[in-house]
């Protein structure tokens, strides 16, 4: 049985990601790619609209990833986490590149009773 805290793969919580690029720049194997843009968001109390980063794409090439976990450790917003998911073999090299959908599906559900 694989423990839930196992380092099977790295998962992404896109709603927590601020597109700060820290993970991308610190990755020793350059296996993370991130694309984002800014949008102006008006808030009722604010005098000026707020600029927020919108995440457009986030890819990890698990062919290159050395599972060092630096990205997980350095993410200031806990948008990256270890997941016990390990069934990620592919029949092409490109199949090891996972995007936002696959990375969020792997997000660990360590405490099922607390809901989503």
């Amino acid at each position: 049985m694989i423990p839930t805290e196992a380092h099977g793969t790295i998962a992404l919580q896109p709603s927590a990601c601020t597109s700060c690029m820290i993970c991308v720049r610190e990755c020793p194997t350059w296996c993370i790619e991130l694309e984002s843009h800014t949008e102006q968001v008006s808030e009722p109390d604010a005098r000026r609209p707020k600029t927020v980063n919108i995440l457009d794409a986030f890819r990890i090439d698990f062919g290159l990833c050395m599972y060092c976990g630096i990205c997980v450790d350095l993410c200031p917003f806990d948008a990256l986490a270890w997941s016990p998911e390990h069934d990620l073999a592919a029949t092409t090299a490109g199949g090891l590149v996972l995007g936002i959908d696959e990375l969020s599906r792997a997000w660990p559900n360590r405490n099922p009773t607390s809901g989503s």
Binding site: M21, C27, W30, E33
Partner: peptide, 15 residues
């Protein structure tokens, strides 16, 4: 020879 993914201008443009 490889393009550094970190070179992408993120939105950390000083705001």
């Amino acid at each position: 020879v490889r393009e550094w993914p970190g070179a992408a201008q993120a939105t950390d443009d000083g705001r």
